[in-house]
């Protein structure tokens, strides 16, 4: 496949493989809309080590995609958006970077994989150009070396016959193949962080697994950290070292993956877990759903955001917003009346 010599020579610099890569501190993204200020991300904090994977799970509208884009700096404070809090990436405050510095970060230090591979590639550009333009920009490669590297990348993400595929257009490929191209694009410059925003949602189930396995293999090879955003706990299970469950712009609960799946403390996490269909349960049984809808984020509930839908909600839930509290080392949840109390 790839000779190690060329791989090493195109790598920006040898990076340390441990230590904190990303620190998100009380991040808030407010989007100004005609109907009022929408608090898409409302005070999120977490850290991510190099080479680590965090799964961010929540239903549609919970703010997880906006969180990913804010971390990357794709959302910046401007006429339509106000951002507060801090994102420290590799020792640099992302929000304080100018457009030029941001562009040198994007695609080279932070890569992004989008939800829908059918629309993430420019329909009028050949596959090769999608890859070579980022290689040429960030690594200063010439036309021919960039093309060679692009072929290697296609090979790396498991696209058969890359020398032929590189001259095809996106519409000549299947969804799964296109998502492989999107991944190759995001990883072309071996970023330290990959943000995968619902990378498998638009794919059918068998392909979903292949893409997730591919991401895992590439992570083992390249050592990048991954933020895996999904609405599906099943996607995150077994792929993430840690999981953060988001609800209405806030982290409801975060723990290492095993703990969260075995011992959820927040009623929302518990409800999400129960909503996953299981093979060993009898057939034709109605799946557990969470009643109600996510709150309007222009005027969120005063107390706990989940209280209106929560089976365990008490009076204090509707008036006092719970903060994240530790249950054990690395296990935090924001709930006045947590579940599974006795099982610890």
């Amino acid at each position: 496949m790839t000779s190690n010599a060329t791989r090493e020579s195109t790598r920006p610099a040898e990076r340390p493989r441990s230590g904190t890569l990303l620190a998100v501190e009380d991040l808030r993204t407010v989007i100004h809309t005609a109907r009022g200020d929408l608090k898409a991300v409302d005070g999120v904090s977490f850290t991510l080590d190099r080479g680590e994977t965090i799964g961010i799970v929540g239903e549609s509208g919970s703010g997880k995609s906006v969180l990913g884009r804010t971390i990357m700096g794709l959302h910046t404070t401007g006429p339509t958006t106000t951002i507060s809090g801090r994102v420290m990436f590799d020792g640099r405050d992302v929000q304080s970077l100018g457009p030029k510095d941001l562009r040198s970060l994007w695609g080279s230090q932070i890569g992004m994989v989008f939800q829908d591979p059918m629309t993430a590639l420019n329909p009028v550009k050949k596959i090769g150009v999608h890859l070579t333009e980022t290689l040429r920009k960030h690594q200063g490669l010439g036309r021919t070396p960039a093309r060679e590297r692009a072929v290697e990348l296609l090979d790396l993400v498991g696209i058969p016959d890359p020398r032929r595929r590189i001259d095809q257009f996106p519409h000549e490929m299947s969804g799964g193949m296109r998502q492989r191209v999107v991944i190759a694009m995001a990883l072309a410059n071996e970023p330290a962080l990959l943000i995968a925003d619902e990378p498998t949602t638009a794919l059918d189930v068998t392909v979903q697994r292949q893409i997730l396995d591919l991401l895992g293999n590439l992570q083992a090879e390249m050592g990048m950290a991954i933020i895996l955003i999904s609405h599906n706990l099943g996607v995150v299970a077994g792929r993430a070292d840690r999981v953060a469950v988001m609800y209405a712009g806030r982290v409801a609960e975060t723990a290492d993956a095993k703990t969260l799946f075995a011992d959820p403390r927040h009623p929302y996490s518990e409800a999400l877990l129960r909503a996953i269909p299981r093979l060993h349960e009898p057939p034709h049984v109605r799946l557990a759903a969470i009643d109600g809808a996510p709150p309007n984020m222009v005027q969120p509930p005063v107390g706990c955001r989940f209280a209106p839908r929560c089976a365990y909600a008490q009076e204090d839930c509707r008036t006092v917003l719970p903060e994240l509290e530790p249950a054990a080392t690395g296990h935090l949840f924001a709930c006045h009346h947590p579940v599974n109390r006795g099982e610890n």
């Binding site: 994007w106 695609g107 629309t119 993430a120 590639l121 420019n122 333009e133 920009k137």
Partner: peptide
Amino acid sequence: QDDFIMSAKAKGMG
């Protein structure tokens, strides 16, 4: 507004 513009932006294209 298309997604591929966002993905070009995310690659650092000016």
